[in-house]
């Protein structure tokens, strides 16, 4: 069943909309949640929350790309849950590692009170991604959007883990330079 047909099921309030979504995108959503939470039960709950969220907002929304639409919801649920567990001193997964890596892109000064225009920053990062070579961009997104482990990325792209780390390091440096050049002080 293609995405449009599944979305039509949501619009028709057909119950099999969720089962069709789970069949097609269940593993995809679970992959995103699990990379962040590193826990099957929590990941499964995030995925179920994703289905309910999709049921609530379709309609009125009609997403063009159901995969990324669901993936974003799952990612947000998983990140929220991660923050909650961090306060409870629980959790693990790729999140601590990813956060450590991204620390390179931000300054040491504590400017958390500085108001950043998110839309402008998103546009800046989109331009950064556009400028990257395709493979570097995919590796970057696999790591910082999907939270994929370094080892898995290396396998998928048939390169060594050190090569992945080096690619990511260079991309982070470029991002940092661009953010500084654009006047973003994070």
């Amino acid at each position: 069943m293609d995405d449009q047909q599944i979305v039509d099921l949501y619009w028709a309030r057909a119950k099999n909309a969720i089962s069709e979504t789970a069949y097609k995108y269940g593993r995809y959503c679970h992959y995103i949640a699990y990379n962040i939470l590193r826990n099957n039960e929590d990941s499964e709950e995030c995925v179920n929350d994703t289905y309910l969220k999709a049921w609530d907002i379709i309609p009125p929304q009609r997403p063009d790309k159901l995969s990324t639409f669901l993936g974003k919801i799952t990612r947000n649920f998983a990140l929220d849950r991660y923050k909650y567990y961090r306060r409870e001193k629980r959790g693990g997964g790729q999140m601590p590692l990813v956060i450590d890596e991204l620390a390179e892109c931000v300054s040491a000064a504590d400017n958390t009170n500085h108001i950043i225009d998110d839309m402008v920053l998103v546009d800046c990062i989109n331009r950064f991604l556009t400028a990257l070579p395709a493979e570097t961009r995919k590796i970057f997104m696999r790591r910082y959007w999907y939270f994929s482990p370094i080892k898995e990325i290396a396998n998928d792209f048939s390169i060594s883990e050190s090569n992945v780390k080096m690619t990511l390091s260079r991309a982070r440096n470029k991002l940092k330079q661009l953010l500084e050049k654009e006047g973003f002080e994070l």
Binding site: R27, C105, V106, V122, A134, Y146
Partner: peptide
């Protein structure tokens, strides 16, 4: 601040999310 970057990354163009998706999922 790192989480800010992660949140911003969550809003990037969907085509980049789509092209990086693991194929077997």
């Amino acid at each position: 601040k790192q989480e800010k970057i992660l949140n911003i990354l969550g809003q990037v163009d969907e085509k980049y999310i789509e092209e990086a998706a693991p194929e077997e999922l």
